[in-house]
Design a protein around this nucleic acid. Structure first.
Length: 255
DNA sequence: GCGACAG
DNA sequence: ATCTTGTCGC
């Protein structure tokens, strides 16, 4: 698909009051801040953060449950985790995911007490028509190394590689914007978020993949934490209790 | 001509 | 992503 097709999709779902041309300019500007360089050695990195979100509906409002975990590769276990409840108003629109999920993710990340060396995000990074998938957006905001890991392709054409994986190619610019890593009979789509190279990103993700899941360990644990929090939220009959969780989340937002 | 669509 | 019924394996 061409970039213009994604604009057509976005325009169809964009809420009143948003200017798509302006949003695209901001995305392009932020994408220009992405650096594809290694500032950490992924073969020696130990503390890896995983981020994910789940949603729960309460009447007409949608509540996002964002979870962050820090996984220690050397210890083989989680060393930190955090969770935040917040109201999400922006809808899901392909290519504009960060408008919906970035703020909850940043809030969960900032609640961690251990600072990770690198962050894995559920979604694409540079493998995006404007080079600003949520992993890149987060990486620019946090000024941290980030990697996008997705279960399906958003943008780009797949080109086979000698090693059995596939490159994600932007045919409009001839740039390689990510890699589809073979895993079981499926693929996991890896792209640079920020401050890492594609080869390093792929190497780290491969090291963190288990046979039982399509996603690398830190994101898998973040996903499980989201789901257990969601079950906890579903048990709350009284509205005042879940409201307190939302208030706690909002108080943390003032930064 | 229609559909294409991370989470 | 969420919703939802039914089936399978621990």
């Amino acid at each position: 698909m061409r970039k213009s097709t994604y604009d057509k999709i976005a325009l169809r779902y964009l809420p009143r009051g948003y200017d798509l041309a302006k949003l695209r300019r901001v995305q392009i500007l932020l994408a220009s801040r992405v650096k594809e360089i290694d500032i950490v050695d992924v073969d020696k990195v130990d503390l890896v953060c995983g981020l994910d979100l789940a949603y729960v509906r309460r009447g007409s409002i949608e509540i996002g449950i964002a979870c962050a975990v820090v996984y220690s590769i050397s210890r083989g276990e989680l060393v930190d985790k955090s969770c935040v409840y917040t109201e999400v108003k922006f809808p899901y629109i392909p290519t504009l995911l960060s408008l919906r999920e970035l703020r909850p993710m940043v809030m969960a990340y900032k609640r961690l007490s251990i600072e990770p060396e690198i962050v894995l995000v559920d979604g694409h990074g540079r493998a995006h028509p404007y080079r600003l998938g949520i992993a890149s957006h987060l990486g620019v905001v946090l000024r941290k190394p980030t990697i996008g890991v997705a279960k399906s392709l958003l943008y780009g054409k797949l080109v086979p590689r000698p090693d059995g994986d596939l490159d994600i190619l932007d045919e409009e610019t001839s740039e390689i914007i990510g890699r589809a890593v073979r895993h079981d009979s499926k693929h996991v789509y890896v792209s640079v978020g920020n401050l890492v190279t594609l080869d390093s990103a792929v190497r780290l993700v491969k090291r963190l993949l288990l046979t039982c899941s399509q996603m690398p360990v830190p994101i898998l644990y973040a996903h499980r934490l989201c789901n257990s929090e969601k079950r906890r939220a579903a048990k709350m009959r009284g509205v005042e209790r879940i409201d307190k969780l939302l208030r706690d989340g909002d108080s943390e937002e003032r930064r």
